[in-house]
Amino acid sequence: MLAQPVNFLCWNVRGLNCPGRRATVHEMIVSTTCHIVCLQETKLDDVDQFGASSLGGHRLRNFAQRPALGTRGGILVLWDEATIGLSNVSISEFCLSADVQIQACGTTFKLTTVYGPTTSSRKDDFFAELLTHKPVAGVKWVVMGDFNQIYKARDKNKRNVNLSRINRFRAALNLCELREIHLQNRRFTWSNERQNPTLCKLDSIFCNDEWDIHFGTHILHALSSSLSDHCPLLLAEDSGPRRPRTFKFENFWASIPGFQDVVKEAWHHDSGHFEPCQNLFHKLKRTGACLSKWSRTLFSQAKIHFRAALMVILRLDVAQETRELSAGEIQLRARLKRRVIGLAVIERSRKKQCSRIRI
């Protein structure tokens, strides 16, 4: 087990060119507390510091990008500088690679995130380009992204597969000495979301033996597809992402009715201590706990609806892998996908209110 676990989120977001979509992606990132986020198909020809911060929050403000060509493609990598450092970023037509160092222990590895071509004529160019990113022997390497290509026939729910291209992709992976990290809870990662859907495993994470040995406790799970037709992939240590448990005072609390009553009741509670420092510590701790509990009662409703919508979308995504969804279920999923954008906008506006940023 690593002294400082590093967790990854990989997702084809199908565009970040509207505030509602960016807010939804931000909420997904925050809910996982990942240290590295790899986004594909951003459809943005440029991302600035403000745009990166709006997605990754205060932790994942550092970024590297492969700009989109107009509104096609685009790769964005966000990371937590307090946990890891990225250097030697190299960008090619389909890939973005960088050397990663974990700050706490000094462990290094190479990260490559990809967005494969959709056109058949460019597949072989992509396979050849992936091979150029292969590091020298002994270097740990992990590759993740939307490959837009399967490497096993069973990674598609229909039989119209190109076996020749599958074999060429598999040969490229063998030359790169990459093996797939098994996805625990899903067979497929993409759906065209029709009545009789086509399902494929287009999004994957591969690694070489050196990376697999060193990060052997990491497990890959699929999350709710949310606003995209691709599901996010969460590669995290088996104990799960660590969530910080710190009290944060929100300035807007003071303007909400009931705030002063909560503070007075908590502050005047008998601590049972007579030593001034211990008494002050108890009062501050109790006041913080009461304010946190009070705040959750104010804003938990939107969060509960947001998480519930994501869970139902995930269940429908899994169900369509074994049966056809009914017309009602397809309509429900479409409504929920619109709903999560609205709920994410509500959460985003709350956070903007309690921040010092004015947009």
Rank of each mutant, 00 (worst) to 15 (best):
V13K: 00
G15E: 01
N17F: 03
C18P: 05
E27N: 15
S31A: 15
L44K: 00
S53K: 10
L55R: 03
R59F: 15
Q65C: 10
R66L: 14
A68Y: 01
L69N: 10
T71P: 05
G73R: 01
G85M: 12
V89D: 02
D99G: 07
G106I: 01
V114F: 04
V114I: 14
Y115P: 00
S121Q: 06
L130E: 11
T132I: 02
W141V: 00
V143F: 02
K156H: 15
R159V: 07
C176G: 10
L178N: 04
L183K: 04
N185P: 02
R187H: 10
T189S: 02
W190D: 02
N196S: 15
L199K: 08
C200V: 14
L202V: 08
D203M: 05
I205F: 00
I213S: 07
F215Y: 10
T217C: 02
L223R: 09
S225I: 06
H230F: 02
C231A: 06
L233Y: 03
L235H: 09
E237T: 10
K248V: 11
F249H: 14
F252E: 09
S255K: 10
V262T: 05
K264D: 11
G272M: 10
N279G: 12
K283M: 06
L284H: 05
R286C: 07
W294T: 05
T297P: 04
T297M: 06
A308D: 13
L310S: 09
V312H: 14
Q320G: 00
Q320S: 00
E324K: 08
E324Y: 11
S326C: 04
E329G: 02
E329S: 02
I330Y: 04
R333S: 15
A334E: 09
L336S: 05
E347K: 15
K352Y: 09
I359V: 04
